[in-house]
Write a protein that binds this DNA or RNA. Structure first.
Lengths: 243, 243
DNA sequence: AACGGTATTGCGGGTTCCCGCAAGTTCCCT
DNA sequence: AGGGAACTTGCGGGAACCCGCAATACCGTT
């Protein structure tokens, strides 16, 4: 087994190193990196068949790293190790995992024993090991009823970036009315009609547009990181389209 | 010295314990807790004169804990230990620190040596020790030019919660026009006029209202945590005002 | 081939928002 | 007292947004 680890927190990193060395005897290779760029760089050598990734890293996240790795070597076994079950990440992962790939998702809050099991499950037994809580989020994201469709998610992204209806229409190549339609169904999915707060006079006290962002954030559908990434995509599109 | 530590990450917690025990010999008392509620609970005993706090904790943050502690014992020495220099936190702290209090703010990314110095500086020498990066954010927040006034911050909060102009006016007890004025000056401070993106045809492609949220988030003026807290305040206000 | 589900698009009207102009207030500083 | 900065408030218009109604199109199923 040839293992690559990417984790920005130094305490967590050394913890992982100790645990991994203790769990696996026949470790042919073990490299530790502290950011996404370093991980991708290290992976270039082609030495590794197993990767352990922290999701939240500055600049390049674990999801980005996984994407690059799987693009080059789709059978690489990857275990994600993260703080929370942020839907923004989970959604990102299920979208990029190749059919053949083995992967796992475990929370940092899990006891050491579970982490150990996940390590062996994914890297040795080649099983997919998904933490129960994460599994729940995943199911919700797939479910058409409470989850957002791809189109609605795009609309949410554009909305959170602060685009106008017109700009959304231009970006997505649809009519103005369509962009607005997508927003409407987004609002509905987020529960913006029969909104909480049934208390009398404050019925119309929410602005759908901004309230949608608020809800998306508190529900973890989007987070500041994801936003920054979307911002970059937007910038790229804008320079491309004006050229 | 009687020290109380609150830190939710178990690795960081045990690291702190080791470091603290190694730094201070004459430690009369040392307690570790893993969340804000536990810290407040433990502090009730009145045994502690020094506290080491992680800022980001679920439910009750380090800022909340500090507030409660200082309300009861304003001379308690507190050292904040946190991941980032989130303006939302820094702003919160400078607002609640009593005149007489000694406190410090150090980043988790700092080398052990600096943390050790901060521990001794704050708890023994009774100096205020503020990390250089944090200091920068602090200054920016105090600076009228780039920082937000209290009123503008309120407007931002309301905006991010998804309130309409009318609702903001009602909540803050001002006229509709005033609420809008506050928004305008907020937009200006956030740089929503001479916005980035000078690229030709996309001049009016941003919706001020939502773009403001986007900027606030990416600039770290607000984060998901802070938002959740504001949401609670809002709920409280709504039930109070309808009663 | 008929059919429900999903998405796109136009139209039109009511609402909300953005903001320039201008007058008034409060408070602090010299 | 006077000057000034920050804040409030009204008015009014132009732009943006929300959304119901309705026609059309595409797709996989039966």
């Amino acid at each position: 087994m040839r293992l690559l680890i990417a984790e920005d927190d130094k305490l967590h990193r050394s913890f992982l190193e100790r645990l991994v060395r203790h769990t696996f005897d026949g470790l042919e290779e073990l490299t530790l990196t502290s950011d996404g760029a370093g991980a991708i760089e290290a992976f270039r050598s082609g030495k590794y068949d197993c990767v352990l990734l922290d999701l939240q890293m500055p600049k390049i996240t674990g999801v980005d790293v996984a994407k690059t790795i799987w693009a080059k070597a789709p059978t690489t076994k990857i275990l994600f190790w993260s703080n929370y079950t942020e839907e923004a990440y989970v959604r990102g992962i299920t979208k990029i995992v190749p059919d053949a790939a083995v992967y796992g998702y475990i929370l940092k809050s899990a006891p050491d024993e579970q982490l150990k099991l996940a390590l062996q499950g994914v890297f040795v037994a080649e099983q997919c090991v998904i933490d129960r809580e994460v599994r729940g989020v995943q199911r919700r994201a797939d479910n058409r009823l409470s989850g957002l469709s791809e189109l609605e998610f795009e609309a949410l992204a554009d909305l959170c970036l602060g685009l106008t209806d017109k700009a959304m229409a231009a970006r997505r190549n649809v009519s103005l009315r369509s962009a607005q339609s997508r927003l409407q169904s987004l609002y509905q999915k987020l529960g913006l009609d029969k909104d909480d707060i049934p208390s009398g006079e404050w019925g119309a006290s929410f602005n759908s547009r901004t309230r949608a962002i608020s809800l998306a954030l508190t529900q973890g559908i989007l987070n500041a990181d994801a936003l920054r990434r979307e911002e970059e995509k937007l910038q790229a599109w804008m320079s491309r389209s004006s050229a």
